[in-house]
Simulated assay, not measured.
Amino acid sequence: MSAENILEVQNVSKTYKSAGTALRVLSNIDFSIPRGSTVAITGPSGSGKTTLLGLCAGLDRASAGSVILNKVKLDQLNENELAAIRNNHVGFIFQNFQLMPTLTALENVMVPMELRREKNVTQRAMELLAKVGLSDRAQHYPIQLSGGEQQRVSLARAFSNKPDILFADEPTGNLDGETSEKIQQLLFELNREAGTTLIIVTHDLELAAHTSRIIKLKAGTIQSDLYV
């Protein structure tokens, strides 16, 4: 594996078995992503986008083939080792925010840093909330925040553990047009500043166009892989 590639997906397939039948969601997916890239994975519903993201991030295991993340072969790791890889190297942004409802905005941002036993976590979390324009909402709970504000907290949390690679699954999917545009600008701004590799799963072709590469899936296979 080349030292410059942070992610390699090698001939990966994923099959789900249910009620005695097999459903193949991904077939022979093969690509590599250099460190610092911005990549969009697009395609119609059911094309395997979110499944592929889950395999790349170590949230699920491939049925065949290998995923190598930051020089580590994920299919050789146990669940605890996978969790450690995610905590140390990976950031996530989800369509439905995935904030912990019993924690304030500040506490949600602090969680990844506390898991890593970092120091000065309150100060760094406040700095990140300031970057996303939420200094005055730090003590609010998710239910007290709008969708756009919740996604800003999610952005701050995603960058809090200084990830090598950030996976965003439909990050603007639950937001209106104006809010979506603001979140999009923040995402790319924070990403440039941190120098993180960014992989976005999205239906939004306008969002995809802001990345440097678009991988399009169709029926579980790569239909095209274009540099923008």
Rank of each mutant, 00 (worst) to 15 (best):
L145A: 11
P44I: 14
I222N: 03
E4V: 00
T202N: 14
D60Q: 09
M126I: 03
D225G: 01
T50D: 02
G36Q: 02
Q139N: 15
M113Q: 13
Q150W: 08
V111T: 12
L175V: 04
G65A: 12
L145E: 04
S45I: 07
K14Y: 09
L26P: 04
I200N: 01
Q98F: 15
V109L: 12
L226T: 14
Y16H: 07
R24Y: 06
S135F: 10
G173Y: 01
H89S: 12
L129E: 08
A156G: 03
G91V: 07
L190P: 09
N80G: 02
E107G: 10
G48P: 06
M110L: 11
L115W: 00
L77Q: 05
N28W: 11
E107R: 14
Q144M: 11
D169P: 00
D169V: 08
M126P: 03
T102V: 13
I214Y: 00
R124L: 15
V201E: 10
E8D: 02
M110I: 04
E206P: 06
Q184A: 07
L74Q: 02
S66N: 14
V72P: 02
T38Q: 03
N78P: 07
D164H: 05
S45H: 05
G48Q: 06
A84F: 06
I222V: 14
L128Q: 02
V39D: 00
G148M: 05
L115H: 13
L166I: 12
Q184V: 09
K182S: 13
I6H: 02
G65L: 10
N174P: 12
V153I: 05
P142T: 03
V228Y: 00
E181I: 11
T211I: 04
S180H: 05
A64H: 12
D164F: 03
L74I: 15
L106N: 07
T211Q: 01
R24Q: 13
I143L: 14
L53Y: 03
L217K: 02
L77C: 07
K218N: 15
V201I: 13
L190Q: 08
Q95P: 10
E127M: 09
S37F: 00
V111N: 08
D225A: 12
T221M: 14
N5E: 07
T179R: 03
I68K: 05
T172A: 02
V153E: 05
T172K: 10
L53I: 14
E193S: 08
Q10S: 10
F92A: 08
L226S: 06
E189D: 15
M126T: 07
Q123G: 09
G147N: 06
Q223E: 14
L134V: 12
N191Y: 00
G48V: 09
L175T: 04
R192V: 05
Q150I: 10
K218L: 15
L82M: 11
K14L: 15
T196E: 01
E178A: 13
S66F: 06
A194P: 07
L207E: 05
A3E: 00
A208T: 08
V153A: 05
T172Y: 04
G46Q: 12
I85P: 03
A194H: 08
A156Q: 06
K162C: 07
A62E: 02
S154T: 08
F31V: 09
D164R: 09
A138G: 02
K119M: 15
